[in-house]
Amino acid sequence: MDTTHSRTMDRKIINRWAVAEMNSVISDLLSGKGLLHPDADSCIGYFYVDHEEGINFRIHSLCRRVPDTLPGIIRHFDNHGEGLTVISEDVEAYTILSGEELLALSIDEEQRWMLYYDPEMLHALRKRVDIDRFRAPVYFDDVSLLLFTTDMAIEPELVWVRLNSQSEDGMSFQGTLLNEPYSDYGVHEGEVLTVRLEEQEGEWVLLAEIDFE
């Protein structure tokens, strides 16, 4: 995973609208669907988290930038841009839009399609700023944690887990193991682990313990 990407950047863009400059990735996507317009130099879209694919940018409208004012809308796509998505890393120059700017552009800030991608349980996990330091860049629901076992002969190791839910007190989580551990912990890629958030020596850590007993 690309650790040069900023986790702070991820937190600032998720569930936000932005106007992005047209680039080769966006142009190729739109051109391949016959939707590219010669006057468009930008597009308006929404950054959201796909549980498996990470932070995506869904293209809602084509526009042309106008100096010192809002971009001029060329067209809004059908179904709020369904099928017109690129990974956030492929969006280069962009500007986040405010609520007032969205109103002026006649864009509904609330999108019903987001109910599928941001269900209540995942929404609660994504609001957890306290675990941002463990999140993978771009893949917002994935965290790194320490996997260890009661067998002292097996060294602890760092693994990636995709969080699916959390306990009522917010101190434990259920998540899917994303990589095969090097050591034999008795758990494998794709299995569900219980993850704990604990304070150790004044620092909060995420860990999963495998009990061999």
Rank of each mutant, 00 (worst) to 15 (best):
P38S: 05
D39Y: 08
A40V: 00
D41I: 03
S42I: 01
C43V: 15
F47P: 04
Y48C: 02
V49Y: 00
V49M: 02
D50K: 01
D50Y: 01
E52S: 09
E53W: 11
E53H: 11
E53D: 14
I55F: 08
N56M: 15
N56I: 09
R58M: 05
R58V: 03
I59Y: 03
I59K: 04
H60D: 14
H60S: 13
S61K: 02
S61I: 03
L62T: 03
C63V: 11
R65D: 09
R65V: 11
R65T: 10
P67E: 15
T69P: 03
P71S: 11
I74C: 09
I74N: 06
R75I: 06
H76Q: 07
F77K: 00
N79Y: 08
N79I: 05
H80R: 06
E82R: 05
G83L: 01
G83E: 04
L84I: 08
T85Q: 10
V86T: 07
S88D: 08
E89S: 10
E89M: 10
E89L: 12
D90C: 12
E92C: 12
A93Q: 15
A93S: 15
Y94S: 08
T95H: 15
T95V: 14
T95Y: 14
E100G: 11
E101V: 07
E101F: 02
L102E: 00
L105A: 08
D108I: 14
D108A: 11
E110Y: 15
E110M: 13
R112W: 12
W113T: 01
W113F: 13
D118F: 04
P119Y: 13
P119V: 05
E120N: 03
M121R: 13
